[in-house]
Amino acid sequence: MALEVLEAEGLVSVQDPGRLGWGRFGVPRSGPMDAFALRAANALVRNPPQSAVLEIGMGEALLRATQDCVLAVTGAGYRVALSIWDFPLWGTLFVRAGQRLRLIKTEGGNWAYLALAGGIQVTPVLGSRATYLRGNFGGLEGRRLQAGDQLESGKSAYATEQLLGRSLPPEVRPAYSQEAVIAVIPGPQIDCFTKRSWRTFLDSSFSVSPESDRMGYRLAGPPIRQRGSADLLSEGMPPGAVQVPANGQPIVMMADCPTSGGYPKIACVASADLPVLAQCQPGSGQVRFRETTVAAAQARYRELVHGLEDGIVEAENNAYYAR
């Protein structure tokens, strides 16, 4: 299966679940902004979970099938147009050689994931196919995709008819919202903040700043004050960590999160809610935080992932798609 990029105006890159194992040398994980949607896209076309997909963000893309393709598109803030038909996200599609597929930006999210059955084949760098744009490596030549790029898939272990008609119903997807309530676990430097600051953090609404990118989402709201200037030694930092610099405006670290940071971390976003935050639109999305525990956050994350594994439905008659 193969696709040609005809237009790519957003932030379109090849991503897999991320680059693990090189963090001690300062190499960020990269990978998807919405890890659930990437996992779901691969599951819908029965790819192994490590397979590489296309991440389309903050803009539109037009692709042409150069061979017959089975693919799935997931995420939020997009719809898919295939010749004269419109398709919803979260299902598999058959695209005949020569047909054009357009990912059209809508409200309600930022990132879409297109999985080709068999997985997108690019050369792994440091064990992963994820693109790290700042480092100019991984994915396709370390860069965002542009018109003329060709993408090929590996061989799928499944026949086309075993892949068509599969979809993931809304009740087992994350609760994407532009007025999102995001669960957080108190961070290791919570003592750098006053009790009142913690209340302000939990009781206020923050808007997602337009200066947000794959590295971090900057939030704007009432300032979160520290108890004085904590001179913190740089330490390891995972995606989801909420850093608060001296200006009091929190930054949530996202997929291209540096491996270490030196600002106090007031909290860390629960894994189940990081995709929801990723889909909040810079410039208009609103976020509130609620406190949770490690155990409760892990239970919700397991429920979400297991819900995906068990939740894919197959149409009884998919002859239409396969004809």
């Binding site: 693990l20 194992g21 001690r24 030694l233 740089s234 330490e235 390891g236 930092m237 270490s260």
Partner: peptide, 22 residues
């Protein structure tokens, strides 16, 4: 357990919450 990130005076240990509890 995934990777461990050494820093000046701390070590961050990543793990998969699907397989392990804290």
């Amino acid at each position: 357990v995934g990777e461990s990130l050494p820093a000046y005076a701390s070590l961050l240990v990543h793990y998969d919450p699907l397989r392990l509890e804290y």
